[in-house]
Amino acid sequence: MHHSGMISIWFFIGLLLVPYGLLTFGAGIYEYMVPSAQTTVLASLHAGIWWGLLILGLGLFWSLRFRPGAGR
């Protein structure tokens, strides 16, 4: 198999999701601390916080599980 040694796509996805999770979570926390005048419907759910955490968790899992050299 001539593609041996190639980094898994899941590592790249994890690598992108980590900052996405942090940004979304951070924006969610900021909205919670400093609510803006123009809120979204059901803003009280604070979706940014839990969705950001979910993305961060997924990102960390994939980037660690499929990191280069970790094997599958």
């Binding site: 996405y20 940004l23 979304t24 979570f25 951070g26 924006a27 969610g28 900021y30 909205e31 803006s36 809120t39 979204t40 419907v41 059901l42 803003a43 979706a47 940014g48 969705w51 950001g52 993305i55």
Partner: peptide, 12 residues
């Protein structure tokens, strides 16, 4: 999207 997604989520 505009109805439910605030900063960050909208970018996603």
């Amino acid at each position: 999207l505009a109805r439910y997604c605030g900063p960050g989520l909208l970018g996603l």
